[in-house]
């Protein structure tokens, strides 16, 4: 466990809390892609199946529970409680374009051909593309509420910090996991365009609106 890991997990948790608070306080999920949140719930479900079999630390187990809870509560708020405010026609990314390649790849490229390992690999590949429906929705509506951009910033920061964590672990433990690193780099690249807009617009107090 290193500082990048801890900051990364905190940043991830912060992103989920920002999103929950935004939806709960505004009683609306306008501008939020329900599909991305469903994908995140699938990511955590397929990744944390070892929740009851592998025990690493209290921190690890508690964080997995919290992440699962946040993901499912968010999905419930979007498709349940505040479904009337759900912007369905703009959340139009075709999930099968993500799920099929990711499923295929997790059967082809994995560390061992066992159900748990394939599901874990599936969750890693899926997480790297899970944000695409949200980014697609923002590009379609041409703008995003500032609170949504903060959510995306901390989500992107979490993965950038995880990259730093993997570099650190490679330097200190001479260990790395190619599948996690490659998909992590892909995921962080998707945020670069957003990071640029976030720094040049949102941090200057402007609203994030795409040209």
């Amino acid at each position: 466990m290193n500082i990048f890991r801890i900051l990364g997990d905190v940043s991830h948790l912060l992103a989920m809390i920002i999103l929950l608070v935004k939806i709960w306080r505004s009683k609306s999920c306008a501008g939020i892609s329900g599909k991305s949140q469903v994908l995140f719930a699938i990511v955590f479900t397929s990744r944390y199946l070892d929740l009851f079999t592998n025990f690493f630390s209290i921190y690890n187990t508690v964080m997995k529970f919290v992440f699962l809870m946040c993901a499912y509560i968010t999905v419930y708020l979007i498709y349940g409680k505040f479904r009337k405010t759900f912007d369905n026609e703009n959340d139009s990314f075709r999930l099968e374009f993500l799920l099929i390649p990711v499923t295929g790849l997790s059967f082809l490229e994995n560390q061992s051909f066992t159900p748990l390992e394939i599901l874990w690999t599936f969750s890693i590949y899926l997480e790297s593309v899970a944000i695409l429906p949200q980014l697609f929705m923002i590009s379609k509506t041409g703008e995003a509420e500032t609170i949504t951009t903060h959510y995306l910033f901390f989500l992107g920061l979490y993965h950038a910090l995880y990259l730093a964590n993997w570099i650190w672990r490679y330097q200190t433990e001479n260990y790395y996991d190619q599948i996690a690193v490659v998909s992590g780099v892909v995921q962080t690249i998707f945020y670069c365009d957003f990071f640029y807009l976030y720094v040049t617009k949102v941090l200057k107090g402007k609203k994030l609106s795409l040209p």
Binding site: N60, M63, K64, Q111, Y175, D177
Partner: peptide, 10 residues
């Protein structure tokens, strides 16, 4: 070296 991932990350 690429060891078996202990899956200790979130």
């Amino acid at each position: 070296e690429q060891g078996i991932n202990p899956k200790d990350e979130l």
